[in-house]
Design a protein around this nucleic acid. Sequence first.
DNA 1: TTAGGGTTAG
Length: 687
Amino acid sequence: MLLLPPPQFPTATHAAGVGRFHCLRPTAHQAICGGATTSSGASTSLPAVAGPVDAVLPLEGRRHDFTPLLNYLSSKAPPQAATAAGSPPTHLDPVELRLAESYRAVPAHHWHALLKSLSASRDTLPSATALVPWLQRHKLCYSVDLLYSILIHALGRSKQLYQAFLLSNQASLSPLTYNALISACARNGELVKALGLLSQMRRDGFQSDYVNYSLIVQSLIRSPDPPDLAFLQKIYTEIEVEKIELDAKLLNDLVVAFSRANDPDRALLLLAVIQGQGLSPKSATLVAVVSALGGAGRVSEAEAVFEELKEGGLAPRTRAYNALLKGYVKVGALKDAELVFEEMERNGVAPDERTYSLLIDAYTNAGRWESARILLKEMEANDVRPNSYVFSRMLAILRDKGDWQRSFSVLKEMKSNGVCPDRHFYNVMIDMFGKYNCLQHAMDAFARMREDGIEPDTVTWNTLIDGHCKAGLHDRARELFEEMQHSGCLPCTTTYNIMINSLGVQERWGDLEDLLARMRDQGLIPNTVTYTTLVDVYGKSGRFNDAIECLEVMKAGGLNPSPTMYHALVNAYAQRGLSEQAVNAFRVMRADGIKPSLLVLNSLINAFGEDRRDTEAFAVLQYMKETGIKPDVVTYTTLMKVLVRVEKYDKVPAVYEEMILSGCTPDRKARGMLRSALKYMKQMFST
DNA sequence: TTAGGGTTAG
């Protein structure tokens, strides 16, 4: 069991010479013994000004001098006071008993007031912590759970959650102490603990009110990370099951929480609840919903909620416009984005750094590099300083478009704006060079980053290692993996996933086992990507039993198999023309309740093709059409490959035509497939 | 600061 470190008690008490409560901060001193000190005539340099306790205590209460008690408590060994709390004194210390007797007449509310004032400051908190068990020992105050709840609240406020929990062991938990503990947990971001206490509370037969849930949801919103959706849903289900009445604040907070957790549907539902009760949502709530809808690319709904914001009477401010802008940028609606910008100008709403960043993002995405540059100039003119964010976005867009040479001009632009690259920027840059096989550039950027005094993080190392793996430089990747650890950066699950893939591609099965053991030793738990990688590498080298075993282990471990995982398996069978096994894996996937993805269906078509079963391959296309899954260029190219495989060359042009009619743009592979089919056809006719 | 952002692995 963990032991409580002895709380730090003020030690200067006696050194002050007067045996009074001098070590406390003046306010606390005045609060607690201001009146008593002066009346006892002790010389003190502190003026006897009425403090908070004097204000709270009735006149008669100020007659009690708590100084001897507080001195006694601070001179006692703290653990004794804290751990032997409820138990009666084991031996009779006459001094302590006399002291206790002298306070027999103090009414309960004076003790409460004393405790509250001691709890108010971090310096006097140890005295408060010692006081409560002491009162309990001597049965001087009977509303023990109120005393404990005051104390637990105070400990929670000063981030001493551990102490609060230790304290809560002193007495059986009442609704009051439960609430105090839950509140302390919520304040300290220990939301799982808070939820656990809530269910424990229910098991003890106490009903919780909305305040506990409100505190938990508030803590979720305050966190810089978006809330975990599963956790949030759990809380909401509980609120529904327990029929907790929701007040306006909690409803608004829930809408914001669901919006931030990227569940705009649930957010909209709760928004309707607010409006159904005749309440009007806060504008911050509406903006959060606009932002979530925009992030999901649901722009028309975002527009509708934005209109509601206007109807609410408050003129939308920059953040509201930014939320709307986010949606348009997300779906690539550049015209609409520009209109928002113009409307802001018309309404005198000043664009800020984010507004400009969003628009620059949109222009870069549309390949309108000049417009992006003009906006950068406009930012400068309007005294809005860009930061590293917008430049790393530009870089990421160029990377995804394959236009990496232009990245050097991004760097130039950035310099001319006086913006220094940060870690995120370098990480994107290293990733970009890695993806385009420019490993020397990647290493140079890595060195530059360190010269700039920026320590690489796990993302940096992972990116660098993966870049080398992708280029086939597995030995160098392995060296970097070791170097990462030497530099003091601990590998994470992603790092191991990258290395597992690397060893799997090389078919170094023994080393792979060692790596998995190392991962476990480090206390890291494999995730869905880990298992999918294993299924992929085992499957591709024909080790199907190992692949299936991974799938089973994963399911047994409680992880949900992903569509990608089945895709890896179906794909592995397909590449070896094992269409029966591919179909079987597909069936298992369906039994697991996974909706077939375009990727897995394309692989299935390939499986039939490699097995010369063209009728079944086209049946998959039919299935796609019936279930509303839009075939892509890969689907049609694979179907053409199927026809070539079974030598039905004459049917290839029709598939090509259908592809174009369905709106797919043929790529190099598609055109190549058509060409080779035509070539074979010509050969057939000429013989 | 009522309201917000970026990077890595299958």
